[in-house]
Amino acid sequence: MRIATWTLAVLALAVLVLPPIVQLDQSLVDLRSAGQPPSFAHPFGTDEVGRDVLLRSVYGLRVSFLVGLVAALVSMVIGGAIGLAAGSLGGLPDRLLMRVVDGFNALPHLLFGIFIVALFAPSAAAVVVSVGVTHWTTAARIVRSEVLSLRTRPFVEAAVSGGAGRMRVVRRHLLPHLLPHLVLATVLMVPHAIWHETALSFLGLGLPPHLASLGNMINDGQRSLLTGDWWSSLVPGLFILAPTLAISVLAQRWRDRSSPRWRSELEL
């Protein structure tokens, strides 16, 4: 718990503060210092074209985190809307929407993501779309089940009985109760989305190769592995692992504390 907090704090500070202060071009190619092991000048060494691995990892984390966050938001918006619609409409629309959810769940995420990315040129938008489109189903299920339990609660029933229309019930009574759950689900989705971004980039299908994304760096670094340059892929790998683990740990802790009832629903 404390380790997670510190990890996140240090990384956040690095990501936010380092790029503006260190006026170094992280894409600067310096073939003279290519493939250097960790040293005082380059604490985590340099890659095969001489770029500083630490600096590039920090920039990479920045890119990956941003892409992960936007992708998580997209999947929550899609999932939230569909879950809300299914839960509050009920009946046939509910059954149809939930079949769609089942259908999407049956698709292998990574393969489907590759398929979507393949339709576009490698770009951040393509990655966001591919992760968003494959990951909204969890949010849809969570929101739907919560709406189903809320809508038979007496206070929602009293509003309906008092003449409140569908939109009003959703806006005034359902959304405010769903929001904390959605925020939490989004936060929990971010690490997952980062993993997908890096996986796609690693396969060469994600972000454009010149961008310092963590996936791209590991992809580049794996060639150096053969020559014994372990640092150029290990460091970006750790940069993926540390923040994603830290976010999961913190979010789950927070969730357990705020509502124990939710413990079972998100643990996948």
């Binding site: 007496p154 029933e157 009293a158 009574h173």
Partner: peptide, 11 residues
């Protein structure tokens, strides 16, 4: 409709 438990019946 007026419910038995007011706590559950108001937002």
């Amino acid at each position: 409709l007026i419910y038995q438990q007011p706590r559950l019946a108001v937002d």
